[in-house]
Amino acid sequence: MPCAVFGASGYSGVELVWLLHNHPQFTLIHAFSSSAREEAEPIASLYPQLTGQLDVILQPWHSDLLSQLAQQVRVVFLALPHEASAQLAPQLIKAGLVVFDLSGAFRLNDNAVHEQAYGFKRAPDTPKHIPYGLAEWTQLQGSEQLIAVPGCYPTVAALALKPVMEFIQGTPIVNAVSGVSGAGRKAAAHTSFCEVSLAAYAVAQHRHQPEIAQSIGSDVLFVPHLGNFKRGILATIYAQLATDVTEQMVEQALRTAYAAHPLVRLRQQPPAINDVVGTAFCDIHAVVHGQQLILCAAIDNLLKGAAAQAVQLANNYFKLPATLGLTSRGGVV
C-alpha cells in the first residue's frame, strides 16, 4: 500500500517513516518536511542514527505536486502543526487520498470547543463526520476519507478509563507526566534538558482536557507535567467508585475490554515508562482502595501516542492484524 508522510522531519513524523519503511504491507513513497525547505535532503542528515538504514529523501512540499502525489500513493499520514493539517487535509481528500491526521485539527466534535482549544476555525470543506481513532475502541469500515488520530495524553487516559466508566461517580482526576519529545523538535528553552524540572503546566486549560472528556463521555480534571526525560507518558488516575464496586469487577471490565487487543497489556504491578518506550503498547494497572480507584497507565508518546497508533488504525482500515509492523521494540528519537 503506497504511502506518504507529511511532517516527516519532526519526532512523530520520523517515527512514522521508520514504521512504514519496515511494515510488510505499506510502502513509503514520499516523505515531506513540515516546512517549505529550499532543497531536498536525506532524512539521515537530520537523524544520523538512520544512516545506512534508511535512504529516504525528505522533500519540500508544494501544492503543484498534488496531482502527482494522488497518482502515486493511496494513504497519507499528516504529522503537521494543527492549522497546517486543517488546511491540507481537505485538499488531499478531494484528490482521492485517505488521510490519517496526527494533529488536533479534527479530533474535537464541537466546532466551538475546537476553536477555543486550538485558536482557529476549521475550513468549510472539512468533512462533517470524522472518526476519532482511539484504536482499541474504533472499527473502521475502509471507506472513511479522514481519520483523526488521538493525542498522546488522551490515548493513555481514555484507554485506562473507558472500560470502567460505568463504575465511576463524579469527576476522574488524571495526573500525567510526559517526556520533552511531546513538545516537538523545535528548540525552546523551556524544553531544554538544562532547563526542565518536573513541573505542572497548562493546569485546567490544556487543549487535551476537552479531548479526554469527549473520549470518556465525562468531565475530567487533567493536570499534565513535563519531566526531564526524552519520551514516554506515565499517567496516574484517581476516581471515586460507586457503592459495592469491587476490585474484581474493575479487573474483569478491563480484561473483557482488552481481551482481543494485544497492544494493551494489563499488568500486575504499576508500569514504568521504560516498560513501554520504543513499543506500541499501553500498559495498565488498577488498584481499588476502599471506594477509590487508582489506575496507573503508561505509553510511548511518540508511538502509541502518535505514530504507532496511526499505523494501527491504518491496519484496521485495510483489515490487517492490529499488531502488523508494530511488534519490534525500537524508536528513532
Rank of each mutant, 00 (worst) to 15 (best):
Q59M: 15
P48E: 07
D101W: 10
A95I: 07
A112K: 14
P127H: 08
A86S: 15
Y47C: 00
H30S: 04
A286C: 11
D275P: 08
V287R: 15
A322R: 03
A235Y: 13
A70E: 03
L108M: 00
V5N: 02
E41C: 14
D275H: 07
V203T: 06
D64P: 06
P262N: 14
L50G: 01
T126G: 00
P321R: 14
W61T: 11
L221V: 10
H30R: 14
P163S: 08
H114S: 13
D101Y: 06
Q87I: 02
G7F: 00
G151S: 06
Y258V: 06
V98N: 12
C3E: 08
A204G: 12
Y238S: 15
P262G: 13
A242E: 13
A204V: 11
L241E: 11
W18C: 05
G13S: 11
S45I: 05
L295K: 13
L58Y: 07
P124N: 07
H208F: 07
F222Y: 13
Q59F: 05
L65W: 05
E15Q: 04
A36Y: 01
K186C: 00
Q87Y: 01
T256E: 09
N22Y: 10
V333L: 15
L102T: 05
T138D: 02
V164R: 07
G232S: 02
G52T: 07
L66M: 13
A257M: 06
E166F: 00
F120Q: 03
A259R: 03
H129F: 09
N22L: 10
S192L: 04
A235R: 13
S181W: 03
A200H: 00
A79C: 12
L221A: 02
G278N: 10
C194S: 08
C282E: 03
A117Q: 12
R267I: 03
D219Q: 07
Q309M: 03
A160H: 11
A135Y: 15
N109I: 04
V220I: 11
I130F: 07
P172K: 08
N315I: 14
Q269S: 11
W137N: 11
I273E: 04
H82N: 04
E247Y: 08
K230L: 08
Y317A: 04
V149H: 04
D64I: 06
E247T: 10
D300Q: 03
G182E: 11
A257Q: 09
T236E: 15
S192E: 11
L266A: 05
V99P: 05
V288G: 12
K230T: 11
Y258K: 07
K128R: 08
F100H: 11
P48Q: 06
D64V: 10
I93E: 03
A157K: 11
C282T: 15
A242R: 14
L16Q: 08
